[in-house]
């Protein structure tokens, strides 16, 4: 009984297909987004996150059609991110059927966007995505925020940045460790813990899941409210249901 920890499969979409890479490069085709979304829903996914990593602006609108198709068939919360630059982008995604929109690079270049969008559409639908890379090790570790799909350093301290995003009205933080992304060695639990201790809004841990114990560790040791994973689900290693059963066995509240 009580609020369940969420398992969120993540679908990276480019030009209408789901892909998965390692450390943000070497993309592999993983299939049709609507078909994959339906499969995860049937397995008991608590939410789905779509990240539009389309490089060409010509293909950007493809995501709207995908979200419309998914939203007509899958009745769980849908988060969409990638290329969100202005309130109009948020509105178009919400109208297509997204429940939450995730803002990453534009939150750094224009923090006011987070304030404007949470004021206009409500905090509940504004997720700020933070890509963080460790810069200081030892007793007082630090992480830096990167943007542009992890290619550009910002000089911003990740935890301080998270607090600022909370103040500006973010409803949730999608926290990705760039050091761990695609590496399958588990979440950066120190990073996750630093955020969950410092912020009052829910934290979604992302980056590094290679097995089911990693998901449980994100919740129990990292203090995450939700865990996000891509490759362990896309390539059929585990189902969402197996992940939930493994978490339940360790006493974690999940929706079964």
């Amino acid at each position: 009984m009580g609020l369940a920890k969420r398992i969120i499969p993540c679908l990276d979409v480019t030009a209408g297909r789901v892909v998965k890479g390692v450390n943000f490069v070497n993309l592999r085709d993983a299939g049709d987004p609507v078909e994959i979304a339906r499969r995860y829903d049937e397995q008991g996914a608590d939410e789905l996150t779509f990240l539009d990593i389309t490089a060409s602006s010509d293909d950007r609108d493809l995501i709207l059609q995908i979200i419309e198709d998914v939203a007509a068939q899958v009745f769980i919360p849908l988060t969409v991110g990638g290329g969100v630059r202005q309130p109009g982008d948020v509105l178009r995604l919400l109208n297509a059927g997204a429940d939450k929109v995730s803002i990453n690079t534009s939150a750094v270049t224009n923090p006011q966007l987070v304030k404007d969008c949470s004021g206009r559409f409500g905090s509940q639908c504004i997720v700020v995505a933070i890509d963080a890379k460790q810069t200081v090790w030892g007793a007082n570790p630090k992480w830096e925020v990167f943007t542009h799909g992890g290619r550009r350093a910002t000089g911003l301290d990740a935890v301080e940045w998270g607090k600022k995003m909370q103040e500006l009205g973010a409803g949730e933080i999608l926290l990705t460790s760039m050091d761990r992304d695609g590496a399958k060695i588990g979440f950066d639990l120190n990073l996750t813990r630093a955020f969950s201790d410092a912020l009052n809004i829910p934290i979604i841990a992302s980056g590094g899941v290679g097995n089911l114990q990693h998901l449980a560790d994100g919740v129990v040791r990292g203090g995450a409210d939700a865990v996000l994973a891509a490759s362990i689900f896309h390539f059929g290693e585990y189902t969402v249901e197996q992940a939930k059963r493994a978490m339940a066995e360790q006493g974690i509240e999940v929706r079964l």
Binding site: M1, G2, L3, G171, N200, I201, P202
Partner: peptide, 22 residues
Amino acid sequence: SQDKMVDAQGSRLKVPHMGWNN
């Protein structure tokens, strides 16, 4: 009320209440 948001295990509960509950 933010200050009363602690569960039976002593863990802090977040506001908004977001997710799947019974």
